[in-house]
Nucleic acid binder design. Structure first.
Length: 551
DNA sequence: AATACGCACAACCGCATGTCG
DNA sequence: ACGACATGCGGTTGTGCGTAT
């Protein structure tokens, strides 16, 4: 931002002032108005800026097309508006982004996706173009380095922050909000959430045991789980954020104690975002809903913005059927994409096993399931929660991992990819929520080293064939770590699959490891071995989506 | 010193949306 | 309801600078 075209523009100034602007059709070319007037294009000169500023002072913003008429500027209204908004507008903040701003951008992008204008609304003095440029260069850098787009703690915060922010009002009108965000210096998870979760240590960290109640009714009644509804955010343990403290991203250690209820915040946003971002609260993440992209391909759904690309884990064998954009964080589904949900939505509650065993879900379950398309994101959440709940119930009814093994065997016998089905059990691959666990892994993998942006990926040096799950030390619970006991398989945890014996031995495990990336494994190993705080995080995790008010 | 490359930035373009007659 | 117009937004491209080779 420090760069200014004015210096070079000044050189052009004399020329532009002496020459008719209409003939400036140099390298930048020129446009023409209907009347035959050739509109100038390319860099703005100081003189033009002055003219535009003067015009705005006199006439105010707006009526950009009349600028050319009244001010003599040979610029189209669009160009004038852009110039004003990005450079001439008062209170514009110039210079590099501060760490706080960078952090906020990341947070906002995690929430909003490529909604630069909305993000800019949270960054006083910054323009959408600035933010966009910053982000684009940033993702290029990270993409090149094979790093996840978001710092792990951002993944953790994103949903929560989004929830919090909703109580502060709509984004569009949320000047107060972004001030709060900036001033509070607190993107941390409210401690109240963690405290709450301590009372529910057995609850699913990312598998919300939603009660069988209508989400829409919850919305309509304005009630819902309060502090415990932090579903996706809590999938990223705090330990990751601790690691993040070593990153160039500032670590926000303050506590958000605004007394707001995340669910209320969330729910208030749902209706607004359902259509534009069916991915939902965490849909801002450019996560691939399907960690392996298999669901996408198998159902012919293009998951634009698949982060597999960004992570360098993209498999050529899984090229989506459509055009793949290298970056579409907002992951907005097309109607076609959404329409698929109705066909792949597993039945609630008891349907998981059936769902897992069933070959193509398309022919399966749909009737009872409120599809995200039909009923909105929250219903999708509910659906997933129910699915997860079923999984958990199964795993608890039987011995810790037998149910999944059975499911896996069944699936294997049907020829369906175990990994796919297993992950589907945690979320529809195409569902906007399907990213819940796996995509978090791929996206929010903690990054060791001192720089998230610069540190090269470890995975690059690891041959895929060497990816063995047993090399990945499962996230350890501090209890049995100290006791040197074999940990029970807790399928409520994303790493449970890696810990399970079946996983070690299955071919799909290798596939999964390959698809998730070696960094997934190695970093989990790092987490397990590098810090015990990670293991503690699961125990202290907020009861994701657990509604204490609705046991 | 010359070149290639990456980065940051500015600006343009196309499309979507809103407003008004 | 419809079309024209204005505006906003996001994606993309062009350009200059700094740095590495």
């Amino acid at each position: 931002m420090s760069r200014s075209t004015n210096e070079s523009e000044d050189d052009m100034l004399s020329k532009d002032q002496s020459d008719s602007p209409s003939v400036d059709e140099g390298s930048s070319g020129g446009g023409s108005l209907g009347g035959g007037t050739v509109l100038k294009k390319g860099p703005w000169t100081s003189a033009e800026d002055a003219i535009l500023v003067d015009y705005v002072k006199k006439h105010g913003e707006g009526n950009w097309n009349s600028v050319q008429k009244h001010s003599g500027l040979f610029r189209c209204g669009k160009s004038c508006r852009l110039r004003w908004a990005n450079h001439l507008r008062p209170n514009l903040k110039k210079g590099a982004f501060t760490p706080d701003e960078e952090r906020l951008i990341i947070e906002l992008h995690a929430k909003l996706g490529n909604k630069w204008a909305r993000m800019a609304a949270h960054l006083p003095g910054r323009t959408d173009n600035e933010i966009k440029n910053y982000w684009n260069t940033r993702i290029k850098r990270r993409q090149r380095a094979g790093l996840p787009l978001y710092p792990p703690d951002v993944c953790l915060h994103a949903g929560n922050e989004g929830q919090q922010s909703q109580n502060l009002g709509d984004f569009s009108g949320g000047d107060s909000q972004h001030h709060d965000l900036l001033q509070s210096n607190s993107f941390d998870i409210p401690d109240v959430i963690f405290d709450n979760f301590k009372t529910n240590p057995g609850s699913l960290p990312y598998a919300p045991p939603f009660p069988d109640i209508s989400v829409s009714s919850m919305l309509s009644q304005g009630l819902g789980p309060t502090q415990n509804y932090s579903f996706m955010t809590s999938t990223i343990p705090r330990a990751k954020r601790l690691r993040e403290s070593e990153s160039p991203f500032p670590t926000y250690s303050g506590n958000v104690t605004n007394g707001l209820t995340p669910f209320n915040q969330f729910s208030s946003e749902i209706s607004e975002k359902i259509h534009q971002r069916p991915f939902g609260l965490c849909g801002g993440f450019p996560y691939d809903p399907d960690p392996m992209n298999k669901g996408s391909t198998s159902f012919g759904v293009v998951t634009a913005g698949s982060h597999a690309l960004l992570n360098g884990n993209f498999s050529a064998s899984k090229v989506p059927t459509g055009a793949v954009k290298t970056e579409l964080p907002s992951l907005q589904y097309t109607d076609n994409d959404l329409s698929m949900w109705a066909n792949i939505c597993p039945p609630p509650l008891e349907g998981v096993e059936t769902y897992i065993q069933s070959p193509p879900p398309t022919a399966q379950v749909q009737s009872d399931c409120p599809s995200p398309r039909n009923s909105g994101l929250l219903e999708a959440l509910l659906h997933e929660a129910q699915t997860l709940k079923s999984v958990k119930n199964q795993s608890s009814e039987k011995s810790s991992n037998s149910s999944v093994i059975n499911s896996a065997e069944v699936v294997d016998s049907t020829g369906q990819n175990l990994c796919e089905t297993e992950w589907e059990g945690y979320g529809d691959p195409i569902s906007p929520l399907g990213r819940s666990a796996a995509s978090v892994f791929s996206e929010c993998t903690p990054v060791s080293g001192s720089s998230l942006d610069e540190s090269p990926p470890d995975k690059a040096s690891l041959p895929e064939s060497n990816v063995k799950v047993e090399t990945v030390e499962p996230i350890l619970s501090s209890d049995w770590v100290e006791k040197d006991e074999s940990p029970p398989v807790d399928f409520s945890r994303p790493d449970a699959l890696l810990n399970a014996d079946w996983f070690d031995q299955s071919d799909c495990a290798k596939d999964l490891a390959t698809l998730l990336g070696d960094d997934f494994c190695s970093e989990y190993k790092q987490m397990a071995g590098g810090t015990s705080s990670w293991s503690c995080q699961w125990n202290n995790m907020p009861a994701v989506c657990q509604m204490s008010e609705h046991p």
